[in-house]
């Protein structure tokens, strides 16, 4: 090469430097081996397995065909998307409002109380949460009995009960809300009072401030939180497993059945479903990055 870099000019023994650098990579070996064995390898097996016939081990596309055409699996996929979109959307909007209301409260115990409550409840998910909702809104649950007795609302009727879609959303929102509060609080704290005041002195109403400054500044954090909530709900397994195994048709539950069920052991199909889930998540991430392109210009 015609251009000689400054480093090469200065470095009297360039060979030794390169050898040292390569040796330095050896220090990463344990970490990379671990991630290879427990991240890349499993994903590789999943990807390859999704193209193999479960019984014969030959190449096939039928797993994907089944996953995308059989109404049972397609519905599971759509249900998973709906539940994660709805609960992430509700979680982002309401969680954002809750965090904002808490942060702007004049009473300091309100602020710290909301943060503490969010910390505890955001970690309270999975099987115990499902049981808590059964005890609250299940057929003999405290709130459902109360609603039926006092207002005649039959929560456990055929149409609207805990083990159906709406009930599942309520349970998911229970951990999405506090998670959102925790995720968005740092960004909200970054909104400076002077921006609001400067905007007001230039004639902006409260709505104009939020439309032109507040929301655009928050947008990257809101979008990132939404994606995280979405992923959180999309991959959730324990909660719905304990709440309504067999009642609500979601992809993670199907995958669990296909590898663990006594009846329908079909790892090929499970692999195809899992691969589709990852493709969808990757799609979400890509969309998020595209959306964020504009903001990236003004973010440090």
């Amino acid at each position: 090469m015609a251009v000689i870099s400054v480093e090469q000019k200065i470095n009297l023994k360039p060979k030794q430097g390169i050898v040292k650098k390569n040796l330095a990579w050896l220090g990463l070996l344990p970490f990379i081996l671990f991630c290879g064995a427990f991240e890349l390898l499993p994903m590789g097996f999943m990807l390859v397995g999704s193209f193999l016939d479960t019984k014969k081990g030959t190449f096939t596309l039928s797993n994907y065909q089944d996953a995308l055409t059989k109404p049972f699996y397609l519905n599971a996929f759509l249900n998973s998307i709906y539940v994660s979109l709805i609960t992430a959307g509700v979680g982002t909007i309401l969680g954002g409002l809750i965090a904002y209301s808490a942060l702007t409260s004049r009473r300091s115990w309100v602020r710290s109380g909301v943060i503490t409550l969010s910390n505890v409840t955001a970690n309270f998910a999975g099987v115990p949460l499902a049981f808590a909702f059964v005890a609250t809104l299940g057929s003999t649950g405290l709130v459902s009995v109360f609603l039926e007795k006092s207002m005649g609302i039959d929560f456990f009727s055929k149409e609207s009960n805990l083990y159906k879609f709406g009930g599942l959303c309520l349970v998911y929102i229970y951990f999405q809300l506090p998670l959102m509060v925790l995720l968005i609080t740092p960004a909200l704290k970054g909104l400076r009072r002077e921006w609001h005041e400067a905007a007001a002195s230039l004639g902006a109403s409260i709505w104009q401030y939020w439309r032109h400054i507040g929301l655009p500044v928050l947008f990257p954090a809101l979008a990132a939180s939404f994606v995280l909530l979405m992923a959180n709900a999309f991959g959730a397994y324990a909660t719905v497993y304990a709440l309504a195994q067999g009642y609500i048709n979601l992809t993670p539950i199907q995958i669990g059945f296909l590898i663990n069920g006594d009846v329908a052991l079909n790892t090929g199909l499970a692999n195809a479903l899992a691969t589709l889930m990852i493709v969808l998540m990757a799609g979400m991430l890509f969309a998020y990055q595209q959306l964020n392109k504009r903001s990236r210009r003004w973010i440090r």
Binding site: I32, A37, E39, P42, F45, G235, A236, I255, T267, A282
Partner: peptide
Amino acid sequence: FTLLPFIVPPIVMALGLIRI
């Protein structure tokens, strides 16, 4: 490597881990 476990749900990881 540290982002992957965020995106890939545990149930999906379980699939490959069982196989291997």
